[in-house]
Amino acid sequence: MEFERLKKWEYKLNACIRCGYCYEFCPVYRSTRWETDSPRGKLILLSGLLHGEIEASDETTDKVFSCLYCKQCEGVCSSGIPFTEILSDARADLVDLGIDPTGTISYNESSHCAMCLSCVRACPHEARVLDENRVVIDPTACQSCGICLDVCPSINTRLGKEFDAGPEMLQKQAVEFLSAAEKPAAKAIVFACNWSNVPGLVTSQIDSSMQQPDPEYKVLVTACAGRLPARVILSALEHNAWGVLVNGCPEDECEHHGSREAAKRVAAVQKLLGEVGVNPRRVQYMELSRGDPQTFERKVNEFMDEIRKLGPPFQHGDQP
C-alpha cells in the first residue's frame, strides 16, 4: 500500500487546525515566504498525497525533503503535531515509491572523496554510511543539520538547499552588515541557532526612515550552531567586526550534537586569535534554552559591553 507510514498520521493531519502559528518560526518559510514551504503548507501537501489529491511530483517531493529539522514548529504548534516525525515517515514512503530525493538533503558534490570518513563519524543521525567503498547518504535519515559541512577536508559535503541558513549566505550577510557605509555603528555579529533564538519582527518591514538608531550588532540565524564553519567567524573579524557571538542550545537539548561542535569550533578560533595577538574574548560561545528572549538580550548586551571596552581590533595593541 502506498503511504503506509503516513496513513497512521491521518488523525494528526486532520488535527492541525491550520492556524499558521508555525510560520514565523520556520527558517524555510522565512527564507522563501511561500506558504507551501511552511510546516502548515507541508502538512497540507502530505494530506493531499495521502488522499491521492496530488501527485508525488518533483515539486511536491522537493518540498517534503526541504526541512532543517530545527523543530521550532513543534514547540509552538497549537495542536501538538509531531511535524518532523510525520515528515520522516512521509519521506520513507516516498523513497519506497522510487522518487529521487532533493530538497535540503546532504550530498557529496563531486566524486573526489578522500574516504577519510570524517562525515560518517560526525553525522549524528547515521545518515552517512560507508557502502561498498563509497559514502552514501540515506535521505530518510538526513536531518539537514549541516554538521557534515565543516568536517570534510575536501570541502565536498553540501546541503541541497540552504534557505538563507547556509554558511555562504551567512558570511555574505555578515560582511554586508559590517561593510555598509550607512551603518557606522556596526560592531558585531551574533550567530544564533534557530532553536535557541528567533529574532523578532521577522515578517514585516519598517520603512527605513523610521529605523531606530543604527544597530551595533546583527543577529543571523544559522539552522544549527554546529554547522557554522570557523571561516565564517573569521571572515566577520576580517571585515572589522569588533566581536562575534555564537549562540547554541544547551548540549543536552541539541538534537544534532551541534552545540558540542560549535563550542569546540569557537574554542579553536579563540586559540588561533590568541596566537596572532587578538584578544580571544572577541569571539565567544553562549548556550541558551529555547524561548528565552530576555536572557538572550541580556547576554548579548553583556557581550556588547565587553566588546565596546575592547574597542576596534588591531588598533589598541589588542593583547590577550
Partner: peptide, 27 residues
C-alpha cells in the same frame, strides 16, 4: 508567480473546512 500543482493545492486552503485550488498564486 507559482502555478505548479503543489503550490496550488496549498493555496487552496485556509483555516476552514474547505478547499479548492486556484490556477495561479501571485505576490
Amino acid at each position: 508567480v507559482k502555478h505548479d500543482p503543489a503550490d496550488l493545492y496549498v493555496y487552496g486552503s485556509d483555516s476552514s473546512v474547505h478547499r479548492a485550488a486556484p490556477d495561479a498564486v501571485v505576490r
